[in-house]
Amino acid sequence: MTITLTVNREERIFSGDPRTPLVDVLRDHLRMTGTKAVCREGFCGACMVHVDGAPMASCLLPVGSLDGAAVTTIEGVATMEHLNAVQQAFEDHDVVQCGMCFPGMVMTMSRLFQTNTSPDRDEIKAAMTGNICRCTGYERIIDALMSIRTNEVTS
């Protein structure tokens, strides 16, 4: 079965088992390895991508269901020179450790700030429920996110 997807604004064609999870299509077929397959059960959030604008766990999405969909991955949210606001806050606050969860964190949190420009700490934590980080203990990540909230509020 042939499936056509738009990945990061570029049309891509996949031929193979349509039940293949999107994360494997991205990583193994398109060799876009920024999206991580960690738990494969929708609990860790490391494989989060945007499908038609909404953050989704790509480990649970059979690619055949996505024919014609627009997918944005971590490789498509910013350029090397210009990080998006969430990425920039994470870099500025030096919160990254092993880094495996961060692609998913960036995808989830970038969307949160598109829908709510000034979430409070509890709202950020609630939105982070499906993104697990084993290294950092979260709070410094949240401190970083709170800083972009404040910046937006004051500007």
Binding site: D28, R31, M32
Partner: peptide, 24 residues
């Protein structure tokens, strides 16, 4: 000093290649 880590940007962009990402 609070020297920031230099591997953060690639990790945030999904560019870092871990062993699991070696393939082709």
């Amino acid at each position: 000093m609070n020297f920031p880590r230099r591997d953060a940007r690639d990790k945030l962009l999904g560019r870092t290649k871990y062993t699991i990402d070696v393939g082709g």
